[in-house]
């Protein structure tokens, strides 16, 4: 109901603003208290849900016959805070399986040189007595680029004993995809560290593994490079990621989803209010219950 006491200005513009940012439409109309209630309440609920669900509850995935994120149809009503998911779904699908054409990023991981071939011939079969090389922690910068069909690159870093090393990549590196996915990862030398979880690779860090050469010594480096915010935020979750989150967060993940769904549905009320005004009137009419008491 459009109340004559409320100036809705350009109500269609207000409705669009209310959709894009909860409370913005009412701010435009000069209805400041309502703008505060809608923005703090709805955005607060939405962000609260995102935090509860480790920022993974809002995503768009629509596979005919497969997983469909119906909840997003409600979440998207919050407007701009949820819209990146639609764009991220496109980026996720467009990326191929090939590794980046170029990469220049800080690297943190481990290095293990291959054992001396002469020693291997002394202990050819018994893995218990076969000499193993020491594993070094390494931090530095990894760089590669694709030239023609081959990938060339270097890893300039410092080992845990303070020694500076310059390693040359000798084969095509392996890396998890740029835009977040829950790829199956089989770390080899990192696996020895029980604190290194698969989850580490699936959000803010990417797993990288490559064969390297340092002079006449060859070895393997395995570790992570940072993943940019826009390469994991609101990106579609695969089944493995969903199972991992449900398993780890339990009901908290479901609560997080409910928070964001309800935030979207509540913004629908706010949009309608910006378009049509308050549903029951201005509010200075006599209260029904008071009237009933008087009767």
């Amino acid at each position: 109901m459009t109340s004559p006491q409320v100036d809705l200005k350009n109500r269609w513009l207000a409705a669009v603003l209310a959709f894009l940012i909860p409370g913005a439409g009412h701010l435009y109309q000069g209805r400041l208290v309502k703008a505060a209630i809608y923005s703090v309440g709805i955005i607060g609920l939405f962000v609260g849900g995102m935090v509860l669900g480790e920022w993974k509850v809002v995503y768009w995935r629509w596979e005919p016959g497969g997983h469909r994120s119906f909840g997003y149809l409600s979440q998207v009503l919050v407007g701009l805070p949820a819209l990146p998911a639609r764009w991220q779904a496109g980026r996720y699908l467009e990326q191929g399986r090939a590794i980046d054409e170029t990469l220049d990023a800080p690297f943190s991981g481990r290095l293990r040189y291959d054992p001396d071939p002469d020693q291997l011939t002394i202990h050819p079969v018994d893995p218990d007595t076969r000499p193993t090389s020491k594993i070094h922690e390494i931090t530095g910068t990894i760089h590669w680029q694709r030239e023609a069909a081959a990938v060339t690159g270097t890893l300039e870093g410092t080992l845990d004993d303070g020694q500076a090393v310059s390693l040359t990549l000798i084969r095509e590196p392996m890396a998890t995809r740029r835009v977040f996915v829950h790829d199956e990862i089989t770390p080899s030398i990192l696996r020895r560290d029980k604190e290194t979880s698969v989850r580490l690779f699936s959000s803010t860090a990417r797993y990288v593994r490559c064969d390297v050469q340092n002079g006449d010594r060859e070895g393997i480096v395995e570790g992570t490079v940072p993943r940019d915010f826009w390469n994991w935020f609101q990106v579609p979750l695969e089944e493995e990621a969903l199972q991992e989150l449900h398993g780890r967060l339990g009901r908290r993940f479901e609560l997080a989803q409910v928070f964001t769904w309800i935030a979207g549905l509540l913004n629908l009320l706010a949009i309608w209010d910006a378009l049509e005004g308050p549903a029951y009137g201005y509010g200075d009419e006599e209260d029904d219950s008071e009237q009933a008491a008087a009767d």
């Binding site: 409320v6 208290v33 309440g41 309800i262 309608w272 005004g277 549903a279 201005y282």
Partner: peptide, 21 residues
């Protein structure tokens, strides 16, 4: 917090007067 926000937003969409909301 869920019920607080639902109550406030629902009431705000019904009336305009702050005290009534």
């Amino acid at each position: 917090p869920l019920v607080v926000v639902i109550s406030l937003v629902y009431s705000a969409s019904r009336y305009e007067l702050t005290s009534r909301i």
